[in-house]
Write a protein that binds this DNA or RNA. Structure first.
Lengths: 136, 136
DNA sequence: AGAAATTTGTCCGTATGTATC
DNA sequence: AGATACATACGGACAAATTTC
């Protein structure tokens, strides 16, 4: 079979499905998601595709992954991987952000803070702000 | 050859190298980076590894990618005429930043703000903080 | 306008490294 | 120590957007 992705890429569709399960309580916050290999089998895709879907969930704050352990459903995430640490939270848009994003002041934004370390020392801290998930 | 990643994963090392080229002006802001295939050849890695490195750059606001076109460097210490997409300024370290960088509160930090647009709309705003001291 | 070349995007299958159980 | 699970990396194939001819 080739690799068609008519309309929406598979990893986005799978991410949407998993997100729904989290919101519907099928996978309540705190619970462990099935292993990537299990999800790959269920959706009949390669494991890499499942990992991309989980990346999306993590970016949107719906899940947090820990090395050898698994991926948890969550509300606000904490992520620790390698030399980079990231944590994510919702913050209200201040005047400048509101102007840039063209939304009302106070609109919730997702702030992701990444701490980049280099030889035990903090090299830089990056804060990225985005609106909540957009698109259909 | 197996796939060892002693110490730092290759994609992070490559991301650091590319980031340095952007900051050092080898790949000035606005310029197009070499194609993924070219970078893969240069670093002697698979294309997927280059893509992961570029993902990191994009997350940190150093690059923006367009389908079919290429990846642009976006990091900047100046602004090009009219609509500036990136600006840089000195700000004093607040309590959290001081703790992370292990310096005194009020120590000057360099804040670089990049506005990432995607098809006319602001997609995200990235603020990167680093110490004002020079480093390699 | 149309075709070809270039470049990024998605997806597969496999192998191996590394952390946790 | 062994099993399980996530992380990194490879190489190949095809899709989709852009540029070039």
């Amino acid at each position: 079979m080739p690799t068609p992705h008519y309309g929406q890429p598979r990893y986005l569709a799978i991410a949407a499905e998993l997100r729904e399960r989290i919101e519907n309580g099928i996978m309540p916050p705190g619970s462990l998601l099935p292993a990537e290999s299990a999800l790959a089998a269920e959706f009949r895709v390669a494991r890499g595709t499942i990992r991309k879907a989980i990346d999306v969930l993590r970016e949107d704050g719906y899940a947090a992954t820990e090395h050898g352990r698994g991926t948890y459903a969550t509300g606000s995430s904490y992520d620790h991987s390698g030399n980079r640490e990231a944590r994510q939270q919702e913050v209200p848009a201040d005047a400048r952000m509101a102007a840039l994003f063209e939304v009302a002041v106070g609109t919730p934004l997702i702030e992701r803070e990444t701490v980049i370390r280099r030889y035990q020392q903090v090299e830089s801290v990056v804060r990225a702000y985005r609106l909540g998930t957009a698109e259909a």
